[in-house]
């Protein structure tokens, strides 16, 4: 197949073209002993408690500064495993491709998925490809499943936050969401903005090793930090207070949000985590995180308090010293002029 070629319906038919595509793209790029067997299912040997997850990726644009849908679909799933304290091990990937999609683009996407897999020390062990007619999908959709093993004694859950926990973010907030917005049709602008899209397994491994008193880990993807904190407050039955002055942002993200009238707290992140850590251990966890590439800008943004009213709340301490509510974000992110 030549790189100017395009994906045809026949590539998903199960016939000769399908095989050619699987062999020349996925088999070649993602080659590993388990995948190379090309059996109906991968056979794996695993012990202990496992974490198992699935995530579908439908990002537009498909290529964005700092990554593409391939990298995103790998890191998204790996990070979901890592947030449970699991060591990510195996990935399966399902590709739904729109007829007419450029083969060269598919190769690039598969390549960055594989590069991210190497970075995250996981193997892609199973895959599937379907081709749908023009208009039935927007370019390419990728669904990935992930399996990871949970070390003994690790018990992380969104319901584990307790009053007194310090809340740490691993770095600047909103980078991915802003980078995507900057390339969205109709609102294009130029900025040195890159998605933060990165696998966090190694960072989490180091954190868990440093402290047995990490209660919650979450990656604030869709809905951003605002959604994540609300979810945790609800699941744990606690109030959360963060300090607005402490939240780290890149100036380009702030500029983007000022321009478009958006709140950076609701922008998606793809390479950041929020950790709830017992107060006594927050320093050691922070120190550990800062030694790591993906945690070098980690900082404490707030703490957990007792639930004070009829429902769990997330508050921000404003610059003025007053408190405002951070509510669960609703609907899609739209630029506003008003």
């Amino acid at each position: 197949m030549k790189s100017e070629d395009r994906i045809l319906l026949a590539h998903g038919s199960g016939g000769r073209l399908s095989r050619e595509l699987v062999e020349s793209v996925f088999g070649k790029i993602m080659s590993n002993p388990i995948l190379d067997r090309m059996d109906d299912a991968a056979t794996l040997k695993l012990e202990g408690r496992l974490a198992f997850t699935i995530d579908s990726h439908v990002v537009s644009p498909i290529f964005f500064p700092g990554g593409d849908i391939g990298r995103l679909s790998l890191t998204g799933t790996v990070n979901d495993l890592a947030m449970m304290g699991a060591i990510p091990l195996y990935i399966s990937a399902g590709f739904i491709i729109e007829e007419g999609f450029r083969l060269r683009d598919l190769e690039i996407i598969a390549g960055s998925l594989q590069a991210a897999a190497l970075e995250a020390a996981v193997q892609v062990v199973a895959g599937d490809t379907k081709v749908v007619g023009r208009g039935a999908a927007d370019g390419i959709f990728i669904t990935t499943c992930g399996l990871g093993s949970i070390p003994q004694g690790i018990m992380l859950s969104g319901s584990g936050a307790i009053p007194g926990d310090q809340i740490i973010v691993s770095g600047t907030i909103g980078d991915h969401g802003a980078a995507i917005l900057s390339h969205r049709e109709g609102i294009e602008f130029d900025a040195e903005l890159k998605s933060d899209c990165a696998p966090l397994g190694a960072l989490v491994g180091a954190m868990i090793e440093a402290s047995p008193n990490i209660h919650v880990l979450r990656d604030p993807t869709r809905g951003g930090v605002a959604a994540t904190l609300n979810e945790i407050a609800y699941a744990s039955g606690v109030d959360i207070e963060i300090n607005e002055e402490k939240i780290p942002y890149r100036s380009e993200v702030r500029g983007t949000c000022e321009l478009l009238g958006l709140d950076p707290l609701i922008l998606a992140n793809e390479g950041k985590l929020v950790a709830f850590v017992a107060g006594s251990d927050s320093e050691i966890v922070l120190e550990t995180m800062r030694k790591h590439t993906f945690g070098s800008e980690a900082t404490v943004i707030g703490m957990v308090q007792n639930q004070a009213s009829s429902r769990p709340r997330v508050y921000a301490r404003t610059l003025l010293g007053s408190r405002r509510i951070i509510s669960m974000p609703t609907g899609e992110q739209l630029p506003r002029i008003c």
């Binding site: 602008f189 130029d190 903005l193 100036s251 983007t256």
Partner: peptide
């Protein structure tokens, strides 16, 4: 071409 916090438009 205008600039806000490193973002231009």
């Amino acid at each position: 071409n205008v600039e806000v916090g490193g973002v231009s438009r």
